[in-house]
Every structure is written in structure tokens, then in C-alpha cells.
């Protein structure tokens, strides 16, 4: 087992490769994450994205990855007659940070695969990307930090959890401006981390209406933990549990993994 923990995008990131991998491949994955951090941070006034948005960095001098983002935004803006950037804070300004974490971690997974890793996991601050099969993923209990609320048996894909227990009620319901009420945490399992993360956040912000909303998501499974020790899960989520039920997943049960189709990675 080769394991390394680094820090990027404001959180600890752990990469674990049970069958081992060359140190250079791990170096490469972490170097990529640090590069993304430095390039796409909208909080860092010195990042390329910040300098571009202030008009200080000529487009031609930006990193090819950044230029690719700009080209795609421009193409979409033209094709939609400007419809897509309704609500954008500045005309032409781009804010890719919504997807940067999921995207960057998925790309880091691609780099590990290119470096020869077949079976590995990346834990980005509690949001997880898995490859290669046979993983057991615990879902943190919202009120008891040292306990689990469920265990999933997964082969491939991503798991994201959104909740209010870490560092206080940090998620505000965007519709009311008040801390989101109605759920303690929402976990979403899907083929790719960026979308799973977004769905978990949106469902949590929707409060009591979140569980029904998650039940309609294509290609994703979800579990919402509500106050009063109630859990509402999609049938797909129960099917991924390492046991006959969510509660039963905590007592061992089967270990054969499953995965949701990973369209995005091809």
C-alpha cells in the first residue's frame, strides 16, 4: 500500500494505491493539483484567472489549459446569443471554481492511471474518487464524528457528501439566506465527482424537498439524513450498501462492489 497526503484547494487530499505505484506518479498527481490551485483560484488575486478577469493577463500569454476554458466559454456565449451568462457577475468574466475541485481530482485520477495505477482512491476532504474495484466507503454519521451511518461497497465512481456538521452550519439556503434546515447531510454517489458534489450541495440547500429531488436524478444514488434519526435513500443507494439495508451495511455483509456507469471518463 502506497499512501500520500498533500494539501491543495484548501483541504487535505489523500491518495491511496494498494498495489503500489512509482513515487514519480504520485508527485505528478500532486503537482497537477497544486498547479490547478495556483491557476484557477478566484480567491488568489495573483492567479491566472484573477489576472485575466482584471484584464492584466493577455489571453495569448495564459496557460493553454486556461485558454481552453476561455475558448469554450466564448463558443458557448456566441452559440447561445449570450443566454448562458445571464447572472454572470462581470461580462466575460469566468468563474470555473464551481467545478474545479471535482474536475481536478478526476484529472489527477487520470494521471495516476497513466502512471500505471489500476486500483486507487483519492479522498479530497471527504469527497471521494474510486477506481479499480473492491472499495468500502463509510458515510460519516452526522452527529457522532467517530461513527458511520452507512457503508457502501463500490468499484468505480465518486461519492460526495454535503452537510452542516463540519465547522458549524456552513451551508446557507440560497433562497432564504438562513442556514439550510431540514437535513443533516446528503450523500450522492455518481460517475464523476464534480456533478456528484454539485448535486449533494443543491439537495442539501433544498432542505426537506431535497430527498424527493434526488430520487429523480439520472445515474446517481443518494442518501439524506434528516433530524429525528430518519434516513431517506434512493433504492439505488440501498443497492450499493454493503449489506441488505443501510443500517445492515454497518455489520459487514457482502463486499462485492458496484459502480454507476462512468460515462464521463471515456
Amino acid at each position: 500500500m502506497v499512501e500520500r497526503v498533500g494539501h491543495a484547494m484548501g483541504m487535505p487530499i489523500r491518495i491511496a494505491v494498494p498495489d503500489g505505484i512509482a513515487g514519480a506518479a504520485l508527485d505528478d498527481a500532486f503537482a497537477w493539483l497544486r498547479f490547478v490551485d495556483a491557476t484557477f483560484s478566484t480567491y488568489d488575486p495573483g492567479s491566472e484567472i484573477s489576472r485575466l478577469n482584471r484584464g492584466e493577463l493577455p489571453r495569448g500569454a495564459a496557460h493553454p489549459v486556461v485558454r481552453e476554458v476561455l475558448d469554450r466559454c466564448a463558443a458557448l456565449r456566441t452559440a447561445t446569443g449570450g443566454a448562458f451568462d445571464a447572472g454572470a457577475p462581470l461580462p466575460g468574466a469566468i468563474d470555473p471554481s464551481g467545478l474545479v475541485k471535482g474536475w481536478a481530482v478526476e484529472r489527477a485520477a487520470g494521471r495516476l492511471e497513466a502512471g500505471g495505477a489500476r486500483r486507487f482512491l483519492i479522498d479530497a476532504g471527504g469527497d471521494v474518487v474510486l477506481r479499480g474495484g473492491g472499495w468500502r466507503v463509510g458515510i460519516r454519521h452526522p452527529r457522532r464524528r467517530d461513527r458511520l451511518a452507512a457503508v457502501l461497497a463500490l468499484d468505480d465512481g465518486a461519492v460526495a457528501t454535503s452537510g452542516a456538521y463540519e465547522r458549524g452550519p456552513h451551508i446557507v439556503d440560497p433562497a432564504t439566506g438562513r442556514p439550510a434546515a431540514g437535513a443533516l447531510s446528503v450523500t450522492v454517489v455518481g460517475p464523476e465527482l464534480g456533478t456528484a458534489d454539485g448535486y449533494a450541495t443543491a439537495a442539501f440547500a433544498m432542505g426537506a424537498r431535497g430527498p424527493a429531488w434526488t430520487a429523480r436524478l439520472a445515474d446517481h444514488a443518494a442518501m439524506t439524513i434528516l433530524p429525528g434519526d430518519r434516513v431517506l435513500a434512493t433504492p439505488g443507494f440501498v443497492g450499493l450498501c454493503a449489506g441488505p439495508s443501510i443500517a445492515g451495511s454497518l455489520c459487514g455483509g457482502r463486499t462485492a462492489g458496484r459502480s454507476l456507469s462512468r460515462r464521463s471518463a471515456r
Binding site: 484548501g10 483541504m11 489523500r14 491511496a16 475541485k101 482512491l121 479522498d123 479530497a124 476532504g125 471527504g126 469527497d127 471521494v128 472499495w135 468500502r136 466507503v137 463509510g138 458515510i139 460519516r140 454519521h141 452527529r143 457522532r144 467517530d146 461513527r147 458511520l148 451511518a149 452507512a150 457503508v151 461519492v159 460526495a160 457528501t161 454535503s162 452537510g163 452542516a164 456538521y165 463540519e166 465547522r167 456552513h170 451551508i171 447531510s185 450523500t187 430527498p211 424527493a212 430520487a215 439524513i225 434519526d229 430518519r230 434516513v231 431517506l232 435513500a233 434512493t234 443507494f237 440501498v238 454493503a242 439495508s245 443501510i246 443500517a247 451495511s249 454497518l250 455489520c251 459487514g252
Partner: peptide, 22 residues
Amino acid sequence: LVEEALAAGSADVDVVSGATYT
């Protein structure tokens, strides 16, 4: 949706998914 009672347990797992503020 499937409804269950919230359980609290421990188990041998490879990784734990939980909320961060990211």
C-alpha cells in the same frame, strides 16, 4: 425513496465520505 432509522456503527472501511466546506 426508502426510509430507514439512522444507525450509528463502526466498520472496517477504506475511506470515509463526509461534508467539508469546499
